[in-house]
């Protein structure tokens, strides 16, 4: 079933008490997060707090040691991870586009190989997504010939083309020049308004305040405080959150 955003029906997402250690380094120490159907959660916190790692346990790019990840209340840890990742789109800080392929082929590759679409159909889907992110004219360009903002929009189009039920953004605008940030955040805000379930790791406090339904503050591998943006930004409870906000705002 399609929604206004052209994606499948949104699902709810729960991360429950997720633990992960790399050797002696305990990166996640019982992190939990809840995002309702079509909701947007922004995860904020200092560097090294485990935000990006938490995001990667959701689509199982990293397998947690303990804890659970649920979509619509059902654990995904027993699912085939490759199939799961087709349902959960991800956008990276450094875009991770494939430089040896055109923009169009970056998008059609997964459509053809994983969704088994024909060449024409895949190209049609890809062009529709490129139009959606305002890059219809760049289909035949190589990623290297695009600006950072344009590359990130292609990366978003590439993820959306697979019609994910959840979108994960890992500091999607951190590598961009300030004047290019706005365009990418605009697309993310549109996606959020269209009812996509999203988890956004970000340093953009303005975006978190205006777009998120939930803001989660992470430090030391746990979500120390979460709530509506107004509560987090206007009435922070935890001393570490207060200190963090005083440093970044």
């Amino acid at each position: 079933m399609s929604t206004a955003t052209g994606t499948t029906t949104p699902v709810s997402l729960s991360v429950r008490d997720v633990h992960l250690a790399f050797g002696a380094n305990r990166v996640l120490r019982g992190a939990s997060l809840d995002v309702g159907r079509g909701g947007t959660a922004c995860v904020i916190g200092p560097s090294g707090s485990g935000k990006s790692t938490l995001l990667r346990t959701i689509n199982r790019l990293i397998e947690p040691d303990r804890g659970d990840v649920l979509l619509d209340g059902r654990s995904v840890l027993g699912d085939d991870p490759d199939a799961l990742r087709q349902r959960i789109g991800m956008v990276f800080q450094q875009f991770n586009l494939f430089p040896h392929m055109t923009v169009l082929r970056n998008i059609t590759l997964a459509l053809r190989r994983l969704k088994r679409l024909g060449e024409d159909e895949a190209a049609q889907v890809a062009r529709a997504q490129l139009e959606r992110v305002g890059l219809a004219g760049k289909a035949d360009a190589r990623p290297a010939h695009l600006s950072g903002g344009q590359q990130q929009r292609v990366a978003i189009a590439r993820a959306l083309a697979l019609q994910p039920q959840v979108m994960l953004f890992d500091e999607a605008t951190s590598a961009l020049d300030p004047e290019l940030v706005k365009g990418v955040l605009g697309i993310m805000a549109e996606l959020s308004a269209g009812g996509m379930t999203m988890v956004v790791v970000t340093h953009e406090m303005g975006f978190a305040r205006e777009v998120a339904d939930t803001v989660a503050f992470m430090d030391g591998g746990v979500v120390l405080e979460s709530g509506e943006p107004a509560a987090i930004f206007e009435r922070p409870q935890h001393p570490r959150l207060r200190r963090f906000l005083s440093e970044v705002l």
Binding site: L61, F98, A110
Partner: peptide, 13 residues
């Protein structure tokens, strides 16, 4: 390594 991560995130084995 980010290229591998990018491809795996799309659902490729």
């Amino acid at each position: 390594a980010a290229q591998l991560e990018g491809a795996r995130a799309l659902g490729f084995s």
